[in-house]
Design a protein around this nucleic acid. Structure first.
Length: 417
RNA sequence: CGGGCUGUAGUACAGCGGUAGUAUACACCCUUGGGGUGGGUGCGAUCCGGGUUCAACUCCCGGCAGCCCGACCA
């Protein structure tokens, strides 16, 4: 990928008014562009990060046994009246009328729609358990969008819904989903705590929020770092400094955190209003037992930037970096040097290494270094007159200080497919 | 939704009741060529509406927008 063709222009200065680190760095690095509070465009680099995160989520959801589908974002009022949530969520749901006066809304979540679909699929205990998910744009009329990507009005959510004959089956799946969630976040470079929280509107039962430690977060979590037990401070009866009741040897701490996902046991809350029932072995109708599970894609991206950065810019984890290698052509670009650099670039392209080639001419070395640090690809490779005469390139990892000179012949040892 | 702060070139900042300035970006010329090289020329702006005033970017009121605090947050 050629930087000169990337629709990219970095900014030296942080945008006015943006305080959140993730907003500052992602805007400066030209990953995103703000259209209004809480609505961002994904520019080519940001788009690639988003795709990587989505790919990880998709792989883990598929591994969990869930099937992917896609539901509409546009909903008629009637389906929301089934659960009383047209009124109940009127503050947070974008609701409007079309030209014929029909009342429509943009989905902030999809329990209603998925329950309706499930009615056409689930009839018998033989059909259960089942689970489906989608990765889709959600709309919420947030009273206060804030902190860059962390709280938007329009955002991408992976929402998963599971269907069961009974609570035991749900509990079993719930624990598997919990593991899958930890795996998603860990693959994105984030340490997550499954935190006990109230079920909110969804459920009277305890739910779990997946918290990542960050000063940029909105939530306070009580955690035991020893065993990983965590509880949202808002429902916690424990105090910091107290002993962990779970492992009895750790000490509870307060931790500021970002919620990147959550899981709920819904029970029959949505199946009942939709008469989503199945026939048990005796032929008797019973309500389907449901669970729902969400992950905020943009939240993951924003959180990663909050966690992985330094004063120069972002330091992407390899797994979700937009590309893995930044190739810089430094110094006066004479034909032999350009040829040499292109040769190196082509080698990486052939090897299938995702490389961003800063091929811009008449851009100073310093400017290229600054841009590379800001954009934060895991590895930086410098090609110049100096390295050319030695038949080599310079390798530096974004997270480290040392620079290594690598002979061209040795490239294949370091960059294996 | 309550409170606070802020709206001036693409971006980031100054400024003043009377001709709007700097940096950067952009275009061109020269220079330089390993951590935003230096110099020159040029292009480019006062959020919207109302009020006060001879005169408003500046003062006052209202809107809108952005950020922050709080409330809210399936």
């Amino acid at each position: 990928m050629l930087q000169s063709k990337l629709f990219l222009r970095t900014q030296n200065e942080s945008p006015k008014d943006e305080v959140a680190i993730n907003a500052q760095l992602l805007i400066r690095g030209n990953f995103i562009h703000k259209l209004m509070a809480g609505a961002y465009s994904y520019l080519p680099l940001g788009f690639r990060v988003r795709e990587k995160v989505i790919k990880i989520i998709r792989e883990e959801m598929n591994a969990l046994g869930a099937a992917e589908l896609l539901m509409p974002a546009l909903h008629p009022r009637s389906i929301w009246d089934m659960t009383g949530r047209w009124e109940g969520l009127s503050k947070i749901m974008y609701q409007f009328k079309d030209h014929s006066g029909r009342e429509l809304g943009l989905g902030p979540t999809h329990e209603e729609v998925v329950s309706l679909i499930a009615k056409s699929i689930i009839f018998s205990y033989n059909d259960l358990p089942l689970s489906v998910y989608q990765i889709q744009t959600k709309f919420r009329d947030e009273p206060r969008p804030k902190s860059g990507l962390l709280r938007g009005r329009e955002f991408t959510m992976k929402d998963l819904y599971s269907f069961h004959t009974d609570q035991d089956s749900l509990n079993e799946f719930y624990e598997e989903a919990k593991k899958a969630y930890h795996k998603v976040f860990s693959r994105c470079g984030l340490k997550s705590y499954a935190t006990e929280a109230s079920g909110g509107d969804f459920s009277k039962e305890i739910s779990h929020e997946f918290m990542v430690e960050s000063g940029a977060g909105e939530d306070m979590t009580m955690i035991c770092r020893l065993c990983g037990w965590a509880q949202n401070k808002s429902i916690s009866e424990f105090k910091a400094g107290g002993r962990c009741l779970k492992c009895s040897s750790g000490v509870l701490e307060e931790m500021k955190s970002i919620e990147v996902g959550n899981i709920f046991k819904l029970g029959a809350k949505y199946s009942e209003p939709f008469s989503l029932n199945y026939k048990d072995k005796k032929g008797e109708l019973r309500p389907v037992v449901m669970g729902c599970y969400g992950i905020g894609v943009e939240r993951i991206i924003g959180t990663v930037v909050e966690v992985y950065h330094d004063e120069k810019g972002i330091i992407w984890p390899e797994t979700i970096a937009p590309l893995s290698l930044h190739l810089l052509l430094i110094g006066e670009v004479k034909p032999p040097l350009k040829k040499f650099a292109t040769q190196v670039y082509n080698w990486f392209m052939k090897e299938g290494v995702e490389v961003l080639f800063d091929d811009r001419e008449n851009v100073s070395a310093g400017e290229k270094f600054v841009d590379a640090d800001l954009i934060g690809l895991p590895r930086r490779l410098v090609v110049s007159e100096k390295t050319m005469v030695q038949e080599s390139v310079e390798l530096k990892e974004r997270s480290k200080k040392e620079i290594k000179l690598i002979k061209l012949k040795e490239l294949s040892k370091i960059f294996k497919k």
